[in-house]
């Protein structure tokens, strides 16, 4: 209910702003909706969204898996931390644009280059978060698992993983928002399809209804995925904690 109100407030603000600024720079909601429906009818909207989502899914999974593994290792093994730390600082502070442009130069304007570049951008934040998680692991529970001779695999699943899951959820949450942002840049710069590409076209043609149609559909999809996938996972992974008042 509150969410609906909040959405209506957004629409109202947009509409009023459109009336004040004028149709050329900010078209009103019905105009954008019309473009959305046109693009949906032709199928272009779904194809572009699908392509973008596939890129997000691939690069996100890649970065999370690699980042979690590296972060866990760095949190547990001092030598790994020492070796990895300078790389981490470099990657953390490297602008996304540099990574994307270099990837396109070195690997060509290919799908692999785009997905790798997006993954490399997200990787360091996942590493940092998981490293903190691994450092915060409770040693006394490790000792318990070792005394009771709980096999490594079981201990990892029941003792270690539940302690890491809030960190994994945090890395997923912040990582996903990062990927949403970067994927469009990567598409804009070197892919022939996807939401980012369409926004690039709209920009060059100064077609603002088209630009808004794609941006808002994309935002809506992000919102749905966050609500349906990410938030329930966070709730699930922390359900044993006493509820905050």
């Amino acid at each position: 209910m509150v969410r609906l109100l909040s959405f209506l407030l957004f629409l109202a603000t947009w509409w009023i702003a459109a009336l004040l600024i004028g149709d050329v720079k900010l078209p009103a909601p019905p105009a954008v909706l019309a473009v959305m429906l046109r693009e949906a009818a032709s199928g272009a909207l779904f194809i572009n969204l699908g392509v973008t989502l596939a890129r997000v899914a691939l690069s996100f999974t890649l970065a999370m898996a690699l980042g979690a593994a590296i972060g866990y290792l760095m949190g547990r093994v001092k030598l790994a931390d020492r070796i990895g730390d300078p790389w981490l600082i470099l990657l953390l502070n490297l602008p996304a644009l540099v990574v994307i442009v270099l990837a396109y130069i070195w690997a060509g304007l290919t799908e692999v280059a785009a997905i790798a570049a997006i993954a490399v951008n997200k990787l360091p934040t996942a590493v940092v978060t998981l490293r903190e998680g691994a450092r915060a692991l409770d040693r006394s529970l490790d000792e318990m698992a070792s005394v009771f001779a709980i096999p490594r695999g079981r201990a990892f699943r029941h003792v270690i993983l539940p302690q890491l899951s809030p960190y994994i959820a945090a890395a997923a949450r912040s990582g996903l928002s990062l990927v949403w942002k970067i994927v469009l840049v990567a598409e804009y710069l070197g892919r022939p399809n996807g939401v980012g590409f369409e926004i690039g076209v709209a920009f060059q043609l100064f077609d603002i209804p088209l630009l808004l149609a794609y941006s808002l559909t994309f935002a809506a999809v992000v919102l749905v995925i966050e609500t349906v996938l990410v938030q329930p996972f966070e709730v699930r992974s922390s359900r044993w904690r006493p509820r905050a008042a």
Partner: peptide, 25 residues
């Protein structure tokens, strides 16, 4: 020899029920 231990602090897994804590060991 199978080793069983009661630590000074209980050292139970907070995210597992009492039964699951015991079945894990």
């Amino acid at each position: 020899a199978r080793l069983g231990m009661v630590f000074q602090e209980p050292r139970l897994l907070p995210w597992r029920s009492v039964e699951d804590n015991i079945r894990l060991a």
